[in-house]
Amino acid sequence: MKESDMWKQTDEEILQQIPEKLLAWYDENARILPWREDPQPYRVWVSEIMLQQTRVEAVKPYFERFLKALPTVADLAEAPEEQILKLWEGLGYYNRARNLQRGAQAVMAEHGGVIPASFELLKKLPGIGDYTAGAIGSIAFQIKVPAVDGNVLRVISRVLWRTDNILDVKVKRRMEGEIRGILPERVGDFNQSLMELGATVCLPNGAPKCDECPLQELCRAHLKGEEESLPVKAKPKKRKIEDRTVFLLVCDGKIALRKRPEKGLLAGLWELPSQEGTLEEPEAEKLLESWEIQMEQPLQKEKNAKHIFSHVEWHMSCWSGTVEAESDDSGLIWASAEELDENFTLPSAFKAYRPVIKRLLESLQE
Rank of each mutant, 00 (worst) to 15 (best):
T163E: 15
Y94G: 02
V187N: 10
I32D: 12
I308S: 09
E292V: 03
Y42F: 04
L33H: 10
P261E: 07
Q40V: 00
S138C: 09
F350Q: 06
D168W: 05
G137N: 07
P214T: 06
I182C: 11
G103N: 11
K351A: 09
D11W: 13
V250L: 07
Q101K: 01
P231S: 00
L346R: 12
E12N: 03
A337Q: 10
G127S: 05
A147F: 07
K358F: 07
P80E: 14
E296M: 07
A325Y: 15
L265H: 14
R154E: 05
A305N: 10
P184H: 10
K144D: 04
S47L: 02
E283H: 05
H307A: 10
I182R: 14
K254G: 03
P39L: 07
V169E: 12
E37W: 09
L22F: 10
L153V: 00
T278I: 04
E120C: 08
E110A: 07
N99G: 02
K124G: 14
K124I: 07
R180E: 13
G90T: 02
L122S: 09
I139E: 11
A352W: 07
W7F: 07
V56W: 04
A97M: 06
L121S: 14
F350L: 01
G134V: 05
G177F: 03
L122H: 06
A335H: 01
Y94Q: 13
L203C: 01
M295P: 05
Q17F: 08
Q9K: 13
Y353E: 05
Q53S: 15
V155F: 02
L230V: 03
A133C: 03
E313Y: 05
